[in-house]
Design a protein around this nucleic acid. Structure first.
Length: 186
DNA sequence: CCCTGATTCGC
DNA sequence: GCGAATCAGG
């Protein structure tokens, strides 16, 4: 996959929005997060305080990396001052490219769910991570708990079952088996 | 173990 | 220029 102007644009946009490299990679498709990060660096827009405090320097020889001919010269390089780019003006996004909005979790209509499932949910909600919207990821259960209009509102946040939006317990109540649970495979 | 970004270096 | 491998922090 080549970095077409178009793709670079998406990259910039998403990176600017604080999207993670892996997310961007998935969005673009055909590239890995490494590719994205690499590109980001090449584009010069690497800094963006997110995670991982910069840890530039010391590198040993990771076995695979080969030391290039040792440059004997201990040339006194000029100041290697870390100049932070002012990032200039931020150009407002003119991209109407809106990916289908996130399907926000359905209301936990605790109606016709099996007692067992409900019990499970009640139990699981006690150890829920109680995440806020911003803290949700693709692998955190997005089951909402509480009243969105109050402070007492959070998302389950437990590990989701692969490919599902919720954790096991919430999947159980979210997807009522029409007959019997028949899914397997992924 | 999962994730994140950062860096290096062969291609 | 590209990105896998690797590193390093959370």
């Amino acid at each position: 996959m080549a970095w077409t102007d178009d793709r670079v644009e998406v990259l910039k946009k998403m990176w600017g929005e604080g999207k993670s490299a892996s997310q961007i990679a998935k969005e673009l498709g055909g590239v890995t997060r490494n590719a994205v990060i690499g590109k980001v660096h090449r584009l010069g827009l690497s800094n963006r305080a997110t995670t991982t405090t910069a840890k530039p320097a010391p590198k040993k020889e990771p076995a695979k990396a080969k030391p290039k001919s040792a440059p004997q010269d201990t040339a006194p390089k000029a100041s290697e001052t870390r100049v932070t780019m002012p990032k200039a003006t931020n150009i407002p996004p003119r991209k109407p490219i809106i990916k289908a909005g996130q399907p926000l979790p359905p209301q936990p209509s605790a109606n016709e769910v099996s007692k067992e499932a409900l019990a499970k949910v009640a139990k699981v909600e006690k150890k829920a991570k109680k995440l806020r919207l911003m803290e949700l990821t693709e692998k955190t259960c997005k089951w909402p708990v509480g009243d969105p209009a109050t402070e007492d509102f959070w998302f389950c946040g437990l590990s989701v079952e692969t490919g599902k939006p919720y954790c096991e317990a919430h999947n159980a109540v979210a997807f009522q088996p029409m007959s019997a649970r028949r899914d397997r495979r992924r």
